[in-house]
Design a protein around this nucleic acid. Structure first.
Lengths: 249, 249
DNA sequence: CGCGCCATTGATGATTATCAAATTTCGTGG
DNA sequence: CCACGAAATTTGATAATCATCAATGGCGCG
């Protein structure tokens, strides 16, 4: 699935910015996305270049490349990751439709970015963006609100990675996936994971074997059922308390 | 150290915003702080209310409190932390002079904030801030640049917490402390830790006993020397490679 | 001087990484 | 459509890391 019918062109209607809260009253939201004005949409539209990625695991940029653009994911899934000196890879974030990525430091990208599934994105030139900020302060507000949302998400991941044992962390991630209609069938309570076990492991800071074992643990407790490698049924009643309360049989 | 001579009043000169990179060319920096114009300083000054905290471990706000302000730390050290359901505390970040904190979601603070040492801060009303953004776009740029810096730092911590073993994580944190002149004597290579072992443990996602043992490991390898509980000599040559390369005797 | 808190050290058990092997899945070609 | 081979996933066994429980040591503060 995933690539239902990727759009190929950019029109003002495709832009959605995923947030759970806005921080600025001038920037309204519906709890899932920012509510963009027609003018905002047009401004974004004028700045955006389309990027159509038809394969999984295709590189968008590498850590250390000169940063010229930021990307807005419209459809698909992208991961940003970093290689640490012992050779391990840490996935810093999965980017869902409505997410920006392309963070840089000293004009160099700070991470790798790769497609996880076929994806359609908008590319925004940093130069053009900064110029547009001057003329359209609302555009800058949009980026500020989104950056603060991303900061909250990153802090949340810090807590999750640091505190819980692996089955709990995994359970938490599965529930996160269930919040994305792209991969969750709310009727059947079935998530279709778009990423491999290795991606999952590198995101959760674990070995892929440990992820398999954690899935076994959740299944033995009947919190999930493995319908296939990628398709999982979730017990949406008992899974949430498990994330935080930790083990007790 | 730490509380050399806390200022008690706000004047335009006290503002510094800690960043390593600006992202916006219109917002210049010197690699450590943003270079604020006199007008920026005056705008901040007009909005700021002083907060003088003379004790350590004093609460500024609690998770779930109604969020009315953001804070800029001028002098001292503040931690933001979250209590997870099993009762553990995770310190999400230490805030150094030049850092903002006070992140909220749905108008509620998402974490606790407490002084680690006596601190002097500026409080900014969210309402007033948003109004000022409309009139002074440069002020909003300042917040955007700082938010992106914080996001990078949070992502860095994700990598650090997930990947390394505890001695490496600790070594990394000690080097981070050494970048803050408030607690580092660059001549003698001595850091004076402003926080307790428990704070350290809750930041690194470990038990406090494990932090002690990690210190012992670093000392046995002669990467540090414990001059006193809080004062540590650092081998600034051999410590950096240890952070990333991990164990090899 | 002594009390109490914080830090360190010791011993044990739980979690997870690592090495290794078996099994399943999936794409490709017959 | 089936068979085969490569890759991904799962399971098994062992070792390293770290949390936990417990006790000792050190330091500041009254």
């Amino acid at each position: 699935m995933a690539l239902s019918s990727s759009p190929r062109v950019i029109d003002p209607g495709i832009f959605q910015i995923r947030v759970v809260d806005s921080w600025l009253e001038a920037m309204p939201h519906d709890g899932k996305n920012l509510l963009l004005s027609d003018k905002d949409r047009q401004t974004l539209c004028d700045l955006a270049s389309p990027v159509d990625i038809r394969e999984a695991n295709r590189s968008l940029y590498r850590q250390g490349d000169t940063a010229t653009d930021v990307f807005l994911l419209v459809d698909g899934l992208v991961r940003t990751s970093r290689i640490v000196a012992n050779g391990n890879r840490q996935i810093i974030a999965f980017h869902w439709p409505g997410d920006f990525f392309g963070l840089s430091e000293h004009n160099l990208y700070v991470s790798d970015a790769d497609s996880v599934s076929p994806s359609f994105l908008c590319r925004f030139s940093l130069q053009a963006l900064e110029k547009a900020f001057a003329e359209h302060p609302a555009l800058q507000s949009l980026f500020l609100v989104k950056a603060l949302n991303d900061l909250r998400e990153a802090q949340h991941q810090i807590v999750n990675v640091s505190q819980s044992d692996l089955p709990s962390r995994l359970a938490f991630f599965l529930l996160e996936c269930a919040e994305h209609p792209e991969c969750y069938d709310a009727e059947q309570h079935i998530v279709t994971l778009p990423m491999s076990r290795l991606d999952l492991a590198d995101y959760l800071g674990a070995a892929q074997e440990s992820v398999s074992r954690a899935l076994t643990v959740l299944e033995k407790r009947q919190l999930i059922r493995r319908l296939s490698t990628q398709r999982l049924w979730l017990d949406t009643v008992h899974l949430p308390p498990f994330c935080t309360l930790d083990r007790e049989s």
